[in-house]
């Protein structure tokens, strides 16, 4: 029996560094990664790497290109799970994945300590598995606290 497939999608830079901190939890899955970094990260057990166009909500044409690319990856790979740590490219992948009823997981970046990111606020309408790394943000509707990606107590008053 072939192993289940997890598609991880995120922007490059910090979003990718956050995502790579989660890889031990992907055990048992065949992992496909799509990101905006020029090359696949070194030393990772990744079946395939897709490079995406970087875009954000203010870049309409680039956003369309990213939308097209993420659709191609989602429909070609047919993953069981799609997981993202942000931002726009990950959200677009979740939108396409929702059409195929996969399990969708959104983990909002630790860079949003006072409010869920714009993508995260949309993602919570796409999936029950929408998480924050800040305990005080789980008050937002549809958002749960997963834990932090670094072992440091940065909570207010800590």
């Amino acid at each position: 029996m072939s192993s289940r497939k997890l598609l991880a999608v995120c922007s490059g830079g910090g979003h990718l560094i956050e995502l790579l901190r989660l890889t031990p939890a992907f055990e048992g899955y065949s992992v496909v990664l799509a990101s905006t970094a020029p090359e696949a990260p070194e030393g990772q057990a990744i079946a395939r790497y897709y490079r995406l166009t970087d875009s954000n909500a203010t870049q309409k044409l680039r956003l369309l290109r990213t939308a097209w690319q993420t659709a191609a990856v989602v429909f070609r790979e047919r993953p069981d799970v799609v997981l993202s740590t942000g931002a726009a490219p990950g959200l677009l992948a979740l939108v396409w994945a929702r059409l195929r009823c996969d399990k969708l997981v959104w983990i909002d970046s630790i860079a949003n300590p006072e409010k869920m990111s714009l993508s995260g606020r949309i993602a919570r309408h796409l999936t029950p598995h929408c998480y924050t790394q800040w305990p005080h943000l789980q008050r937002s509707a549809g958002v749960q606290y997963l834990g932090s990606l670094i072992p440091l107590n940065l909570e207010p008053g800590a």
Binding site: L6, R21, L22, T23, P24, L146, G147, L149, I150, P151
Partner: peptide, 18 residues
């Protein structure tokens, strides 16, 4: 130094989700 990976409690929470 801080580990390359997320704390085990966070990884376990994600393992349950997956």
């Amino acid at each position: 130094t801080v580990s390359r990976f997320a704390p085990e409690t966070t990884l376990n929470a994600l393992r349950k989700v997956l």
